[in-house]
Design a binder for these strands. Structure first.
Lengths: 337, 337
DNA sequence: GTGAAAGCGCTAACAT
DNA sequence: ATGTTAGCGCTTTCAC
């Protein structure tokens, strides 16, 4: 069953032509006669000839694969980004090698190694939460391989990036919460060395300041996983006076926050509002449905992949760093007034 | 910045050796003297030599990539499977090309073409809901490329497959519902030409029969998307007597079903129980938390990938079709009595 | 123990 | 308009 693929040579032999003629005929070279062309092309079709990509790429010493490093695959936002990357890669005829750091620094380092070993032309990366050291990313650049960060960018490395407007996403959400009557807005954030977390915190603080509400450190906590939320939210509900809104760094935390608020006996949104970040599928099935900031992951994936491919193909000529920003949208549902 | 990779030749020239010697030294060939070996290996390390995979694969005329066709990437179950495939592929040093049919027949056909053009060694596929014609899958087999179906298998093609025990998953869930006191269990299913849907329907029916409950066609509907559920569930809630349980083909349908039951004024699980299928992340954030059948997608992905790789490498010697079945588990939460 | 030559499939100079 | 030759990076006979 394992039949060998038909090669140019096979066709050449069959037609008593030289391989180069066949090659040219197939690629519509002007110097080939019409008859030979049609003859060759028919025979190619007849034998289901497929050019050997390996040989082609070896010759031009340019493979067409790009690598992707994501912290987590089983995750609404990242799978959305992945879908966008996939679409753009397919369009440009690039193959994808997807690596999965699993929020783990060592696996991230290994992923970089894997991708460089595979000699990908470029890498799209989103940093794991655990990463605080960046030399593996620097290796990519030093190797002459193109690198574009998306979402969880790494400020220590001088390279292209695609982010969302975390600051404005947070600012608008918190501004909305305040305008709807909330005065004690809690912030469940993430490790501040992640720019996305820090920018959202600043957006949060500035929205408070705009309305002359003092920033209260007791209302700001790192709580970016379900486990942390289950620990921290109950304790925050005991603060007096109790927060009248929770602005959360992601939808999972928001959804579980919402559950705990309800089981503590508060009404949502009458007593306490909750707002998430991402606008993932789970926002539709919580009760009440969860207000959230849409991150447009698909568009982020497409943008990042497009940028990388343009760099690879020399179509992006700007010499310095290119930073693209994807706009967020607050999607108001029922967990806010 | 785009420096050329170091090749065997470069090292050979530097060390005044022949490329073949260098090649042998690097791969620890017995006929090479210890001194040359260490010398070569040191120089290789010094220049960060990386073998050119393209050249290697061209020589052995065996690339190391496998293709995956999934109906949907942004989907808890499939991203779980993907994570399993990814892990196994990485372990076996295979690259992945992931195609995304988006539940669309034409895109599925095109995906097969893409993968065959890329000359992947094997393909892992899960059929789109829209597919009713299978010749594109037959093309894969005719081409001599290995094919393993997972989850949404295609019965028309004679090839390896990995499925879950849909029948027993459904049987056990419905059996549990009945044992908890439900008598009028509705089934929100999917297109019966999909084996997964048909097997679950049979499990459902047999569980009813086991308890001598007649199968009532009015309680069985095709409703496998959120849109369909929003249309069908309200109408079913008007049936007299009303169903006292809904067994749903997936968690999204179950979650939205649950919402509509609540807004119709019924209590869950006191009046009506709801059970989903997959046990995805959303089962944790609905109110009440959703009882569901765990499909173990990660294990399915690993199993399918392992099987495919074994076929490719000739390690799976069974001549006929290999069918693997992943066991499901009913995970009882709060939407059932 | 090491080297020379050939070849994997393809294309691009350089003939003719 | 077509053929010849060489070479992409690597391994593998076959020599010595």
């Amino acid at each position: 069953m394992d039949r060998r693929q038909i090669t140019l040579k096979d066709i050449a032999r069959e037609l008593k032509l030289s391989p180069s003629t066949v090659s040219r005929a197939l690629r519509n070279h002007p110097a080939i006669s019409k008859e030979t062309k049609t003859l060759v092309q028919q025979t190619a079709k007849k034998y289901k000839y497929k050019p050997n990509t390996l040989a082609l790429q070896l010759r031009t010493s340019q493979n067409k694969t790009i690598g992707v490093i994501v912290p987590e695959i089983i995750h609404y936002f990242f799978s959305t980004v992945l879908a966008g990357i996939q679409e753009e890669a397919e369009k440009g005829n690039y193959n994808l090698i997807i690596c999965h750091s699993n929020e783990n620094y060592e696996r991230e380092v290994k992923s970089v190694e894997t991708l460089l070993d595979a000699q990908v032309r470029g890498i799209l990366a989103s940093q794991s939460k655990a990463t605080e050291e960046f030399s593996h990313f620097q290796d990519i650049v030093d190797n002459g391989t193109h690198l574009v960060f998306f979402d969880r960018i790494c400020t220590g490395i001088n390279t292209d990036k695609v982010v969302i407007d975390d600051y404005w996403g947070a600012f608008n959400a918190v501004d909305y919460l305040i305008k709807s009557g909330c005065r004690r807005v809690a912030f469940l954030g993430s490790n501040p060395h992640l720019p996305i977390a820090n920018n959202r915190r600043m957006g949060y603080e500035d929205a408070l300041r705009k309305h002359s509400i003092p920033v209260d450190k007791t209302l700001m906590q790192v709580s970016d996983t379900i486990e942390l939320a289950r620990e921290i939210v109950p304790s925050m509900l005991k603060i007096d006076p109790v927060p009248d809104a929770f602005f959360c760094i992601n939808d999972e935390v928001a959804a579980h926050c919402l559950q705990m608020i309800k089981s503590a006996g508060f009404k949502i949104p009458e007593d306490i509002s909750v707002c998430g970040f991402t606008n993932s599928d789970i926002t539709e099935v919580t009760d009440p449905r969860l207000t959230s900031v849409d991150q447009h992951g698909f568009e982020m994936g497409r943008t990042a992949a497009k940028l990388l491919i343009n760099r690879i193909e020399g179509k992006e000529t700007r010499v310095g760093i290119v930073s693209k920003v994807i706009k967020t949208d607050l999607v108001v549902k029922n967990s806010t007034k």
